[in-house]
Design a protein around this nucleic acid. Structure first.
Lengths: 148, 148
DNA sequence: ACGTAGTTGCGACCCACTTGCAATTGCGAG
DNA sequence: CTCGCAATTGCAAGTGGGTCGCAACTACGT
């Protein structure tokens, strides 16, 4: 049960270069693909497949997210028990979420360099927090936990 | 969408003390609960609800795992896209899994103290890797990745 | 041994995808 | 520009993992 479809992120800073990348991989630029990518570039935060489909056919959207993920344009994260959230892969970010209040944020990978090095030194694994987030108590919830 | 049912682990080193803990919480010791706990104490590794049900009624097993989790006897981890894996909460362990080969291991929380401190210093979150694992490339897969 | 609230087991149901397949369409060749 | 056809879509049906309603059953205090 390995983690599906992990490809190196492909650098496509805007919608146009993403569509070019599609064609460069011998894939077609269809309406559904254009829509999914347009939405992801428009509001740069992780979205569910439902949201990206926006009333259209979800099956196609899932298939497209799969192929976009396979070529490294898109990735997805599981922040909790709900549906997966898809985002652009070139906006490389790690995720943190609070187990108590459910808040989450994307953090620049550099900020976790020290922690990742510590993990690699201790376990031999080079970690990333892009598929599953770091789960913990945020500052606010640590507070209210101490004074219940 | 917060992470469900996270209770402080309850220290019950053996089956008998777990059953006592159940009664202490005003809960009944039913056949299904006895079976689930017996299995978890017998082979101490994370198990799916299916496995724990072993042909019996899975719905009851899920309900019981829920209540056992609520009182801190049990916890569950999501190692990938498959079903959740349940284990005893008192055997407190963090998890690491390899994104390439799917291998996973439980690691003693102390070994990750430095990394967790680094994360808390940088992000303000006090992390645990018991619900979602640390995902990364294991030593073996880093190797074969470098020489494909 | 009894009463009853807690639990079970079954079936139906829900959500998040996935798949089979006929109809459609992007796009390179002519 | 328009043909040809493989890639892609849209729908419907299916699957895996988990939840829920409810009548029957049972653990446990009295």
């Amino acid at each position: 049960m390995t983690l599906a479809h992990h490809a190196a992120p492909l650098d496509a800073p805007d919608l146009q270069s993403a569509l070019d990348a599609l064609r460069a991989h011998g894939l077609r630029v269809s309406a559904s693909r254009r829509q999914v990518l347009a939405r992801l570039y428009a509001d740069r935060r992780p979205r569910t497949a439902e949201e990206l489909a926006d009333g259209g056919d979800v099956a196609s959207v899932y298939r497209n997210l799969d192929t976009l993920e396979a070529i490294g344009l898109v990735r997805h994260v599981h922040l909790g028990h709900g549906p997966g959230l898809y985002s652009l892969a070139h906006a490389d970010a790690d995720f943190v979420t609070c187990e108590r209040c459910g808040a989450y944020e994307a953090v620049a990978p550099e900020r976790l360099a020290a922690a990742k090095d510590a993990i690699e030194r201790e376990l031999g694994y080079r970690p990333r927090f892009t598929h599953f987030p770091i789960v913990g108590l945020c500052a606010g919830c640590k507070e209210s936990h101490a004074h219940p």
